[in-house]
Simulated scan of single mutants.
Amino acid sequence: MSNNAIPRDFVKNVLQNGVGRYVCQLKRITFRFCKSHGGSRHMRDFIENNLLEFTQKNPGVVCYLQPRRHRPPSVVAEFLNGRREVMLLSGKEVPEICKWVEHMRTRSGVQIVNMIQNNHTETPSTQGIWHPFMFRDSEMAATEFPSKKFSQIQVTGKTATDLVLEEQLKVSSSESSDSHIEGK
């Protein structure tokens, strides 16, 4: 598939879905299957075991069953914006059919396009891509924690717990000496 086959569009600001609440964009879903053909076996299993649960969880989505003789199973999703998508499900097992139905339910119905920006550069970053482990020691990746080497502060050789305990002792001793001086 060439890059020209995918529709292109500019990045736009999209308004939030609904005013104050989420509005499901899927208005109708049609399950097409054959009652006797073996290729529709998983679709029939999905309809028998999972469709009732789907309809109970999504009362705003209308579900239709359309038996068709000697045709591969498919799902037709119709959205509030008027778009209609057909997905062939031959060879898909029940968990995969569940995932595709959920995918259709959560879609906005907007056509999938290759997003392009108004600005373009051949070198997006002169510094490279940063990630949280960029300047970390690679030895840490193979170390089991807690580790004596990585838990000690390199300058003093003491652990962070030792330093916190020392600070606490200093604070408590200064508080006791201050209260002792005020008592005289």
Rank of each mutant, 00 (worst) to 15 (best):
F150L: 04
P67K: 04
S147C: 06
L88A: 15
S147N: 11
I47D: 03
V94R: 03
Q152R: 15
S172L: 15
T106H: 12
E85S: 06
K27M: 06
M87T: 12
R136D: 14
E53V: 15
I116C: 02
E182K: 14
H180P: 04
M87G: 11
R71I: 13
L26M: 06
G20P: 00
D45V: 00
A160T: 10
N119I: 05
L15W: 08
G82I: 02
G38A: 15
E53K: 14
R107D: 13
D45T: 00
T30N: 06
A77W: 01
L52I: 10
E96A: 09
Q56F: 09
S172K: 15
Q154M: 00
Q117I: 07
L165Q: 13
I116A: 01
K27L: 07
L169Q: 13
H103P: 00
V76Q: 10
R83E: 10
S74K: 10
H37C: 15
C63F: 14
A142S: 15
P146V: 04
Q56M: 12
N81Q: 06
R71L: 08
E53W: 11
I153R: 13
T156P: 01
W100R: 12
V171K: 13
R68C: 09
G82D: 04
M43G: 02
P67C: 04
L65K: 07
G20T: 02
H37R: 04
I129V: 14
V110F: 12
V19S: 10
E139K: 14
Q111A: 13
R68N: 04
F145E: 05
R44K: 09
T123H: 00
R105V: 10
R8N: 06
Q117R: 08
L65E: 03
T55W: 07
L26T: 02
E167S: 13
R69F: 08
H37A: 14
R105H: 11
P146F: 06
I97M: 05
V61Q: 02
R107L: 12
H42Y: 11
E53P: 06
G82P: 02
C24S: 11
Q117Y: 13
L88M: 08
Q154S: 14
Q154N: 10
T156Q: 03
